[in-house]
């Protein structure tokens, strides 16, 4: 009896040790980055990176948010880009996935097979030809160049949605169709609500992926007008290679919105991402 108790205490201790180590290791870099961003450049030069800011200063953040090529435009551009891509991808992917799952039309299976095959195309393979195509079309350094390649749906989302849609009983849909509901109403009133978990997951994944995307925005935009937040962060690193307080303010601004999103939607993320097998 006593031995069991001791063993359990030991087991708990070991578990807490692992969890504590994981939490500390995960948070340490963020802590360093935030602390550096709150330190004055003078203090950093004198005392190095491991001192608490004394006193904490928001100087770096105000520099970033007030200067002409600062972070205000990139944040606005990124928000707009993510919003447009998100709406487009979800709407068009739901439409296509529904058709693949529940409608019969000639060429359907072949087309779906092609979609699945394109899952294997890595972004770096298409970046050069897409640059050539969109430059040729005169779209480089426009908002449309940022969103166009992604806004018409993603094979990945379609694949996952179709798997989920197929598990819906078709009697239910037939019943509704007999009621005279149009396809769009059927989708909005039945298919979407029934598949809410997977759609929420897709929304989160899409937001994370495109908020963080870097290579494409870097190649297809030029100058401050359509610069996204990742491109602005990278430019900051190039420009102020020795002014780490400013650079860390930039990375903090780039990461903070998604960290907040993560904390708000923690349940959905921790449950659905692991459960559905995404990315």
């Amino acid at each position: 009896m006593k031995k069991n108790l001791a063993r359990r205490a030991l087991g708990h201790g070991a578990t807490y040790l692992v969890l504590l180590a994981a939490a500390l290791l995960t948070l340490a870099p963020f802590t360093v980055s935030v602390l550096t961003s709150l330190t004055s450049p003078r203090q950093l030069a004198q005392q190095g990176p491991l001192h608490l800011p004394a006193p904490p200063t928001l100087e770096s953040f105000s520099t970033l948010l007030s200067s002409v090529d600062g972070f205000v435009t990139p944040v606005a551009v990124t928000v707009q880009m993510v919003a447009v891509i998100l709406v487009g991808q979800i709407v068009f992917s739901v439409l296509a996935a529904y058709a693949f799952a529940h409608l019969r039309f000639p060429g359907r299976d072949l087309l779906f097979w092609v979609f699945v095959a394109t899952l294997m195309v890595p972004q770096v393979v298409v970046v050069v030809p897409l640059y050539l195509m969109l430059s040729e079309a005169g779209l480089r350094n426009t908002f449309w160049a940022l969103v166009l390649p992604f806004v018409l749906g993603s094979p990945y989302a379609i694949f996952l949605l179709r798997e989920n849609f197929r598990q819906m009983p078709s009697e239910l849909m037939d019943a509704m169709r007999i009621d005279g509901a149009g396809t769009l109403r059927l989708l909005w009133n039945l298919v979407v609500p029934l598949n809410r978990p997977i759609i929420v997951t897709l929304v989160l994944i899409t937001v994370v992926t495109h908020w963080n995307s870097f290579m494409w925005p870097m190649v297809i935009t030029s100058g401050p007008e359509w610069r996204t937040i990742t491109v602005a962060t990278s430019a900051l690193q190039s420009q102020y290679s020795s002014n780490w307080t400013l650079v860390m303010a930039g990375t903090t601004l780039a990461m903070l919105p998604l960290m907040l999103l993560m904390i708000v939607f923690q349940k959905q993320i921790t449950r659905s991402v692991g459960g559905t097998g995404l990315r």
């Binding site: 447009v84 998100l86 709406v87 350094n141 100058g223 007008e225």
Partner: peptide
Amino acid sequence: VTGTVGALAACSPSSSGGGSGSGSD
């Protein structure tokens, strides 16, 4: 709401695009 934001955003870049003039055209 996200959808509405997206629709608004879709309009604003194109309308502001010409004015600021730091692009090539």
